[in-house]
C-alpha cells in the first residue's frame, strides 16, 4: 500500500489499484491484489520478494507487456491501460528498455548489431558503439553471443536496452544467471545508465544484497507491496556483496 513520492519531482509511473487474476473459479490465482505505486523519474527501485509475490506481474504491466485485470497505469500523463496492442508496442519501442535473466540476445547478430537492432527503430538513440562503451564492451563489439561470456552477454543486453535512451529500464533478475563478481559488473552498468542517462530503473531480484544500491526498495508478498524502504545514500554496486 506504499505510494510515496517524496517531493514534486516528475512522476514516471503511477499505478492505481492494480489487480491481476489468472484463471477462473477455484483455480483463480491472484497475482496482484491491489497495488498503488508512484515512481518518480530517475529513481532506482528494487523490487524484492519471494517467487509468486507478484513482482514480475507488476513489472510486465508497467512495461506494457501485460494488462491488469482492474486498475489503471499512467506513464507520465498517458494512461497505459487504455492503449491497444499497437500503441503498447510503440510505447515499448520508444520509452522502455528491458533486461532479462537469460539475456535474450539474437544469436545471429553481433554485439553491435544486437544493439543496432533497437537503435534502428528508435527516435533518439545513441550510437550502438557508445552504448557498448557505457557497459565496458567497446573491445567486444564484433563478437557474436556465442563468443561472449554470460556477464558479457548480459552487458550487451543492457547496452541494447539503454541505447534507445529509454525513459525507463526494467530489469528482471538481471544477475540471476551470473556469479556475484560478474553480477556486480552488470549492476555497475545498470547504475551507470541510471546515473548518466537519468533513466528510471526498476530491478526485480530475489537477492536482498542488491537492494542496497536502490533509492527505494519495495518488498512484495502475496500480490501486494508490503513495505517500502528508502536509502538516502545508496551503495555503489562494487560495495555490494552476496
Amino acid at each position: 500500500m506504499e505510494s510515496t513520492a517524496t517531493d514534486s519531482e516528475a512522476i514516471a509511473f503511477r499505478a492505481e489499484k492494480l489487480t491481476k487474476t489468472y484463471g477462473s473459479g477455484e483455480a483463480t490465482v491472484h497475482a496482484l491484489r491491489g497495488v498503488d505505486l508512484e515512481v518518480p523519474s530517475g529513481e532506482m527501485v528494487v523490487l524484492l520478494g519471494p517467487s509468486g509475490s507478484g513482482k514480475s506481474t507488476l513489472l510486465n504491466i508497467l512495461g506494457g507487456l501485460d494488462s491488469p485485470t482492474s486498475g489503471r497505469v499512467f506513464f507520465g500523463r498517458r494512461e497505459l491501460t487504455a492503449f491497444d496492442d499497437r500503441h503498447l508496442t510503440l510505447f515499448r519501442r520508444e520509452h522502455v528498455g528491458f533486461v532479462f535473466q537469460f539475456y535474450n540476445l539474437i544469436p545471429s547478430l553481433t554485439a553491435r548489431e544486437n544493439v543496432a537492432l533497437v537503435t534502428e527503430i528508435s527516435k533518439n538513440p545513441m550510437r550502438p558503439e557508445e552504448a557498448l562503451r557505457l557497459v565496458g564492451l567497446e573491445q567486444r563489439m564484433e563478437h557474436f553471443p556465442a563468443q561472449l561470456s554470460g556477464g558479457e552477454q548480459q552487458r550487451v543486453a543492457i547496452a541494447r536496452a539503454i541505447a534507445k535512451q529509454p525513459n525507463v529500464l526494467f530489469c528482471d533478475e538481471p544477475t540471476g544467471a551470473l556469479d556475484s563478481k560478474t553480477g556486480i559488473v552488470v549492476l555497475e552498468a545498470i547504475a551507470r545508465a541510471n546515473r548518466e542517462l537519468d533513466t528510471t530503473t526498476m530491478i526485480i531480484t530475489h537477492n536482498a544484497g542488491i537492494a542496497d544500491m536502490a533509492d527505494r526498495v519495495l518488498y512484495m508478498a502475496d500480490g501486494r507491496i508490503q513495505r517500502s524502504e528508502r536509502h538516502p545514500e545508496p551503495c555503489a554496486p562494487d560495495q555490494l556483496s552476496w
Binding site: G63, E94, N104, I106, P107, I121, R160, K164
Partner: peptide, 16 residues
C-alpha cells in the same frame, strides 16, 4: 519463437 518474442518485447511490431 523465443527470439521473436524477445524482439516483440524490445518494441518490434508484429509486422517487423
Amino acid at each position: 519463437g523465443r527470439e521473436l518474442a524477445s524482439l516483440r518485447v524490445l518494441g518490434l511490431t508484429r509486422g517487423e
